[in-house]
């Protein structure tokens, strides 16, 4: 098992190295940034069973925090990254405390509701956020540790920084889901009632998962703020929240690599098709529907199937319920 994990990790690093030479470095950076956010959502959605439709709250809050720190204080890179992560985590702790009191659709709508409120504040508080015009003029500080200082001005160098941040985030996330904590999260997803009966404080663990995810999402938001020198208002809008949800779903939930593939596919598809045909969302929609109807395990399952065909076994019969997605709907639907 350890060898399999190692090979997967090596493969991931190889993909990260190759990525900016296959797609533009800018797109590659964005893929990595959204992969972090998708990975964070996967922790609460895929591993703990809570679908948040409001991750842009933490993404955007951290992006604004970082932007303001860099504009007004010329704060250094790592300080900004730490601050944004902290802001994401604290905001998620506050908002999450309220949201996790409810489950199912009510939980989703609470996360969405808070997202809308913060969007509104960002929209109206133009003196601080620039409102609809976005927060412009954000510098990209160099990567500086002690006497070492590396400029990140070129797209490729910035990608390097984003990629390293991504790998660190991935490693941290892997440690979390492999730890006893991860096991508890999964137990809560499978059956919250049983987890409680065994003696776990379900709400507290949900809260913890939500907070951790908020911190990761905040980190992604900071990286995003430095991409184009502007924090656009969309960064805190529900459109981004929705995109993150769909990335996770496309990739396949409840497994570490799914959200990464989902983020890559979602971003790359929308970039590649939009250049070819201005009605690109149509193709995206058709792809989504086909995936849902015929390839429910997401891209991870696609790989598995290709592997099986290559191995000569022919396609597997499709299970009614993919193993990665337990039918927790009934238990979720009631508060």
């Amino acid at each position: 098992m350890r060898r399999v994990a190692l090979i997967r990790f090596v493969l991931l690093v190889a993909a990260i190295v190759v990525l900016p030479f296959c797609v533009r470095p800018v797109v590659a950076s964005e893929i990595c940034i959204f992969a972090i956010a998708a990975m964070a959502l996967n922790l609460i959605f895929g591993y703990t069973g809570m679908l948040s439709f409001g991750q842009a709250t933490f993404f955007g809050l951290a992006a604004y925090t970082a932007g303001l720190m860099m504009i007004h204080w010329h704060a250094p890179l790592l300080a900004v990254l730490a601050a944004g992560t902290l802001v994401g985590g604290v905001a998620a702790a506050l908002i999450g405390y309220v949201c996790i009191q409810r489950v199912g659709t009510y939980f989703i709508m609470l996360t969405f509701g808070f997202n809308q409120m913060l969007y509104f504040i960002a929209y109206k508080w133009t003196a601080v956020t620039g409102g609809d015009d976005g927060l412009p003029g954000i510098p990209r500080p160099p990567f500086a540790v002690g006497p070492l200082s590396i400029s990140l001005d070129s797209s490729l160098r910035y990608y390097g920084f984003v990629a390293v941040s991504f790998l660190l985030a991935f490693y941290a996330m892997k440690r979390i889901v492999d730890s006893p904590l991860g096991v508890i999260f999964r137990a809560i997803r499978e059956n919250p009632g049983r987890a409680a009966a065994v003696g776990y404080d379900v709400k507290r663990y949900k809260w913890l998962a939500f907070t951790i995810a908020g911190a990761f999402t905040g980190g992604a938001g900071v990286l995003y703020s430095m991409m184009f020198g502007i924090v656009p208002l969309e960064s805190i809008s529900w459109i981004i929240s929705g995109d993150i949800v769909f990335m996770v779903l496309i990739g396949g939930i409840g497994n570490l690599y799914g959200p990464l593939l989902g983020a890559a596919a979602f971003k790359w598809l929308s970039e590649a098709i939009s250049v070819v045909w201005e009605r690109w969302p149509l193709i995206l929609g058709v792809a989504l529907v086909l995936v849902v109807l015929f390839l429910r395990g997401g891209l991870v399952e696609a790989f598995t199937r290709v592997r099986d065909i290559v191995a000569g076994g022919g396609p597997r019969p499709e299970p009614d319920e993919p193993v990665s997605v337990p039918d927790a709907a009934e238990s979720q639907a009631r508060p």
Partner: peptide
């Protein structure tokens, strides 16, 4: 969207 415009 500002984000898509700048990215593209």
């Amino acid at each position: 969207k500002a984000s898509s415009a700048t990215r593209r």
